[in-house]
Design a protein around this nucleic acid. Structure first.
Lengths: 180, 180
DNA sequence: AATAATAAACCGTCTGGTTGGTACAGTAAA
DNA sequence: TTTACTGTACCAACCAGACGGTTTATTATT
């Protein structure tokens, strides 16, 4: 694959993410993505042979980005759990919205398109369990962190920004104590 | 409203839930629900004037059921947090799958159809905060409980049944200690 | 008889996907 | 250097089917 194709594919994914976060997960259609990206529908399907392939690529990129962000924090000395919590704090609202809607779109399209996400979750859990010695509180903290953005994804979070902030700080303190 | 109408409306909701959990959130269409329920599409739209109305009713019923289940536990002396955790434990897999897919369908259809769910979450949070004296660990436990079924909803849970069971037991123990 | 409930055929729009084709860069033969 | 050829990238037009919703007609219930 040459450079031009790579750029185009990236632009298509970008457009798909934009559609998802601006118009909602249910509006991610080939027509709409084509319109927003500026390419034709035929062009889209040249690079991604089906809608499923497009959504899969979209999800995969988000998973990769997330993993990279956590690994960077861990390279700076953080434990896996703290890195997860911190990475949640630092993500821009736009990125979180993108992620949320993309995942929602994938889930609605077909259960199974989220397998890469599940795999990523599993890896994260293993790391955290290994570091904490299977401490259940560490697992609870990890789940709580997940809940924060899963709730945001569905716009059902009962917490306002300030409450969320305070809670994340508490979680980070507990994480530091648990992971020596 | 007539008794006959009530029964029909309930059957339609039931069929919609069945479609959602068996075929996936994205496949909840009027035609499909009509086929499964045994009524015609015209019949559906007589009782629920739009797809949106149908999905709204579906979500509302789940919210009501859940609230009822928790209130029953609380009437037996449980605190709000323990009731939430216990209610998660006791729900059948079928009900959880129904709930998950219905909510997913609603979210994909239109953000905002989940407002009743958000409101329910808010109430629950208020109750738990009031009972625990704003203890952050109680909030974390609540979030973890949410995460358990949000993850199931997307089939991205990294925990197997046994791990989940043990974790819920731990959470229940902590809840009992926090809520005297 | 009056009204509530259901069915069936239909409509316009949007869906994912296919088609045949164009523009163009590279390249190998003349 | 021209020519012929090849593969990549893209597009406009189109298709069959599914979609949400309407209309009209028919049957039950009261």
């Amino acid at each position: 694959m040459n450079k031009r194709a790579k750029v185009t594919k990236a632009q298509i994914i970008e457009a798909a993410l934009a559609v998802a976060s601006e118009k909602g997960a249910g509006k991610v259609t080939l027509d709409e993505v084509a319109k927003v990206s500026g390419f034709s529908k035929g062009g889209l399907l040249y690079h991604y042979p089906s809608k499923e392939a497009l959504i899969t690529a979209m999800v995969q990129q988000l998973v990769d980005d997330n993993a990279a962000s956590r690994q960077q924090l861990m390279a700076q000395g953080d434990d896996a759990l703290s890195a997860m919590i911190k990475s949640h704090v630092h993500l821009s609202e736009q990125v979180q919205c993108n992620t949320a809607m993309a995942i929602l779109a994938a889930a609605a399209e077909q259960p199974g398109l989220l397998n890469p996400v599940q795999q990523a979750c599993r890896h994260l859990l293993c790391d955290i369990n290994a570091e904490s010695g299977d401490n259940p509180e560490a697992m609870v903290l990890m789940l709580a962190c997940d809940a924060l953005w899963l709730q945001d994804m569905l716009s059902i979070s009962p917490l306002d920004a300030e409450q969320k902030d305070q809670l994340l700080q508490y979680m980070l303190r507990r994480a530091k104590e648990l992971m020596p």
